[in-house]
Simulated scan of single mutants.
Amino acid sequence: MIIKTVSPHDDPLGSELLAMQKAAYAVEAELIGDDRIPPLHESLAELRARDLLWLAAFDGGALSGAVAWAESADELDIDRLVVAPAMARRGIGRALVEAVLARAGGRRVVVSTGRDNVPARRLYEGLGFTLLGETEVIPKLWIAGYALVR
């Protein structure tokens, strides 16, 4: 597996990222019983309009996962972590989050996931993230927020 910096503005990578994102969030929607996850319904233009930094994992040259985040002087906010469903449970998500953590320095790292997304919650907790709380972001759609202070 190779992890490298990418941009959704590159073609055809942007379309590949969007397709993988939709497939990954469809799995999360099934896990949490709710398909109102905003990135599940994003267009390519909306994806490209987000001011995010991206890393992607490639296995044998094929896109297998990606992580995007925003950062400030004090904090990194992991905005999305997606793994191709056919590549799930192979350590790709963990490797991508660890790559972001390596860029954090001493800054706090925050992330949110669906409250009922047990695999994602296990991943973040296994990496040392602490649960900040659970929030109902829209009626009946709950997220769990995490932080890691290094």
Score class of each variant (00 low, 15 high):
R94V: 03
H9P: 00
L101N: 02
R107N: 08
P12C: 09
D79N: 13
K140H: 15
K22N: 04
A99R: 09
R50E: 14
L141G: 01
A73H: 09
V6T: 06
A19T: 13
V110E: 09
N117A: 02
E16A: 14
E125A: 15
G126T: 09
P8W: 04
A88M: 13
D35R: 08
L96S: 03
G145C: 12
E75D: 11
V100F: 10
E98L: 10
L96D: 03
E71F: 05
G33C: 06
G93P: 08
L47M: 15
L44N: 03
A86C: 07
L40A: 07
R48H: 10
A19Y: 02
D77S: 14
E42H: 15
W69R: 04
V6P: 02
G61C: 11
L52R: 10
A95T: 09
E71C: 04
D34G: 04
P85N: 11
A120H: 05
I2F: 03
L63K: 04
A62H: 13
V118K: 04
D51G: 00
G91V: 03
G60P: 04
A49H: 11
H9M: 11
E75P: 00
M20Y: 07
F129H: 06
V111D: 06
L55H: 02
I37C: 04
H9A: 15
A45P: 00
G114D: 04
P39D: 02
M87Y: 03
S112V: 10
I2H: 13
A70L: 00
L44T: 05
Y124S: 01
D35E: 12
L127F: 10
